[in-house]
């Protein structure tokens, strides 16, 4: 048991120390298709998304909440509401260039929490604001899009297997900061994807790290009839 725990810690440290991998640039003919496929990962238009959020707690325990996200890819705005499973609102904030907290109950009542949450929402749901975008493949042949953000951080969007994307956020010194697994149940080709994932796993590396697992309960396009209720089982 102790050895397993040590191995997990070592694996975590290794991941945290993992640097930016070398990318082999795509040829001019492949570049547009690769970038288009990457951009299909992000929701396009206005959406109302309801997720269950599973948070890892100390002692290998788990806690569950509901997360309501209303987002617009057009103006990169988002409204995020965190509720208990019974529907009581613990946190409600919007972002439209700056964060405005509408309601916050302890322990969700700090500015740091609101800022961190909005950063995570932007990382997961919005295409990175890139000063420079490149595409190609990693050493193992996996396709990758690389976004150099204006703040010096780098986002790699990797497609290691069908229906699964991995998003990796690196610091400006190329150390891995966060990774996000984005999984879809539908076997849709990337160019037909709605950009709505069924399951999202976000891991923040380093200390203190955290892990969130978000399962889609409902996705409702705003201004359009119909919704999509599903989740990866």
């Amino acid at each position: 048991m102790k050895q397993t725990f040590l191995l997990i810690i070592m694996w975590g440290l290794l991941l945290a120390c993992a640097g930016l991998p070398k990318m082999y640039p795509a040829g001019p003919a492949d570049l547009p298709d690769t970038i288009k496929a990457c951009e299909g990962v992000y929701p396009a238009g206005d959406w109302q998304l309801l997720h269950t959020i599973e948070a890892a707690l100390p002692g290998s325990r788990k806690g569950f909440l509901m997360g309501l996200t209303v987002l617009s890819s057009r103006d990169r705005s988002a409204r995020c509401v965190i509720m208990t499973l019974e529907g009581f609102v613990l946190f409600d904030a919007r972002y439209d260039g700056r964060i405005k907290i509408e309601r916050a109950v302890a322990p969700f009542d700090s500015d740091d929490f609101a800022r961190g949450l909005m950063e995570d929402i932007h990382l997961i749901f919005f295409r990175p604001p890139a000063a420079q975008t490149a595409a190609g493949s990693l050493n193992d042949g996996t396709a990758v899009c690389r976004y150099h953000r204006p703040d010096g951080r780098i986002v790699d969007l990797v497609n290691p297997e069908e229906n699964r994307w991995e998003l990796r956020l690196y610091r400006s010194d190329h150390r891995l900061m966060k990774s996000v697994n984005i999984m879809s149940k539908d076997r849709l080709p990337a160019d037909a994807s709605t950009g709505i994932a069924d399951k999202i796993e976000l891991t923040a590396h380093g200390s203190p790290g955290y892990k969130l697992v978000m399962d889609l309960v409902e996705a409702r396009p705003i201004g359009v009839e119909g919704s999509r209720d599903q989740g990866v089982q």
Binding site: L57, G59, R61, K62, G63, F64, D215, Q233
Partner: peptide
């Protein structure tokens, strides 16, 4: 106690 169904099985919610 509270349990939440995840991946087809009931998991105890420790935050409750």
């Amino acid at each position: 106690r509270r349990f939440v169904q995840k991946d087809g099985r009931l998991v105890e919610d420790a935050s409750a």
